[in-house]
């Protein structure tokens, strides 16, 4: 089973990287872009767990280590193989 974990900066946390990417897109002519936020995507491979338990454990992983709740939000999706 594979999980894809997305960690993004909370609204209100300054994202200078996203701003720089946004400016670059404008320079390339993509004027329609109004904002860019850069986040992280992690692929976590898990073995031998029923889906429900995997969900619970992934939630704990995100809260303990993968995301910092002061500045980041997270979500994940699980793909059975």
């Amino acid at each position: 089973m594979k999980a894809r974990v997305y960690v993004t900066l909370k609204r209100g946390v300054l994202d200078p990287q996203g701003k720089a990417v946004c400016t670059s897109l404008h320079q390339l002519g993509y004027r329609e872009v109004t904002d860019v936020r850069v986040g992280k995507c992690m692929e976590v491979t898990l073995g031998g767990l029923p889906r429900r338990e995997a969900e619970q454990r992934l939630k704990a992983m995100c809260e303990k280590l993968l995301a910092n709740p002061v500045i980041e939000d997270y979500r994940f999706e699980i793909h059975e193989e």
Binding site: L9, V13, L14, P16, Q17, A20, N68, V70, I71
Partner: peptide, 10 residues
Amino acid sequence: PGALVRNAGL
């Protein structure tokens, strides 16, 4: 309390 994030000027 708080967090240290990427410098505003990158």
